[in-house]
Design a protein around this nucleic acid. Structure first.
Lengths: 224, 224
DNA sequence: GTGCCGGTGTGACTTAGGTCATAGACCGCG
DNA sequence: CGCGGTCTATGACCTAAGTCACACCGGCAC
């Protein structure tokens, strides 16, 4: 089962180890909208996404949702409770039909002890996750909604510089997008309309064309 | 130098190792307001606070500040860039005269390789940090300012249940508090006034008396 | 086709958040 | 004790964010 080699922390392991680990995994299959785990539940291992994609999010008492991050094949979920022993920080729901592996906690901790390189790779993964959260905090604290959308579009278009005319398909409804940006559907619709009116983008349904990458970048930085 | 034994990841090490590490540390001394490191700078090691306290924060282009966390003696700063090799996520400034040690990156990574227990403890520390960030995100996304203040007061009063009449001294100006709550000074003042008017707290300057812990807890949960 | 239904676009309105300005309280210091 | 600076309190105002209501546009099923 070569799926585990796609996981960044395990890539360095010899094949024999990978196979042994794979044999220890349990499989979970979810339909779209299914719950992989829920905020507060105890954590029994590391989830690894095999197919599909998953959104990690919290819901407020008032019913608003905030997405913390979302992950696709090869990515892992729920590392934090694995190491600090607490419950899950948020809930994970499938965005499409999804298959995930659960690598038991004891096996993973044991692996970290026996293979320091794995522990270091996990430290790197947690560090990146932390960066993601920090970026989310500063978006929420500093940027008005239209600029958050601009950042999201930039990120979705890939990292390097963006060619004018680049087309991106977010594959998300405006409601889902709103939960990522920390706002509500209507404001996303208005922010899109505003970007379009300014000639920064054009769009048809969920396909967005970047017309003016420079202005988009300026907005994403929070300038004018 | 027994300071290093106060650091949770190192507590498990034999004294000889601790001493060797201590010998490798550099010392930095800061006056109040001094800068320990700045967002984006490359990271050369792990900072350990010996005395004083430090606030880790970002500043927006519009000049607003958001505090990510703050740390006192025995705590460490800047773990993320240590492991993912990027620059610092935010800037760290001293809130009072502060002395910090810098344990060089190479020594720490080496230690993680040789002592898996250290790596696991660091994973735990990063996991906790992640929880802190997640809590900050949900505060910013879900709670109005007065409720964020209520949460902060609860946290400052310690974790267990709070006795009516408990006095807490935040030791922060309203401006500093505002930067933690992700808002501005005036709103903090108004939120205080509101809590006081509702009989939840009483106060005199920076000393706050919790009069009605139950209502405070309800507010902190975002209820009425 | 007809009719539903999830997703989208917009206008009108309310409210929380933020800005600006000003006055008063407190603190340390000469 | 009085003075200057920092911190706090509060009113008047402005703007972004959020709510509500409703119209419309595509797909898809029957």
């Amino acid at each position: 089962m070569p799926l585990l080699t796609r996981v960044s922390y395990l890539a360095s392991l010899p094949m024999a180890d990978i196979r042994r680990l794979a044999a220890r995994c349990k499989v979970r299959t979810l339909r779209s909208g299914g719950l992989l785990f829920e905020e507060g539940q105890p954590c029994h291992g590391l989830f690894i996404i095999a197919e599909g994609s998953v959104e990690v999010r919290q819901t407020s008492l008032r019913g608003r949702e905030q997405v913390f991050h979302s992950e696709g094949p090869g990515a892992t979920l729920g590392e934090a409770p694995l190491f600090d022993g607490g419950g899950y920080i948020a809930s994970a729901v499938a965005l499409e039909p999804t298959r995930a592996l659960l690598l038991p906690r004891a096996d993973l901790l044991d692996l970290c002890r026996r293979r320091p390189q794995v522990a270091l790779s996990m430290l790197e993964a947690l560090a990146r996750r932390l960066r993601g959260f920090a970026a989310l905090v500063s978006d929420l604290a500093f940027l008005p909604v239209p600029e958050r959308l601009a950042r999201h579009l930039e990120a979705a278009a890939g990292h390097g510089p963006i060619a004018p005319g680049t087309v991106i398909d977010l594959g998300l409804t405006q409601t889902q997008l709103a939960a990522r940006l920390g706002t509500v559907r209507e404001l996303v619709a208005r922010a899109f309309a505003q970007l379009e009116a300014g000639g920064v983008i054009a769009r048809k349904r969920r396909r967005v064309v970047i017309c003016d990458p420079a202005r988009l970048a300026a907005l994403a930085r929070g300038e004018p």
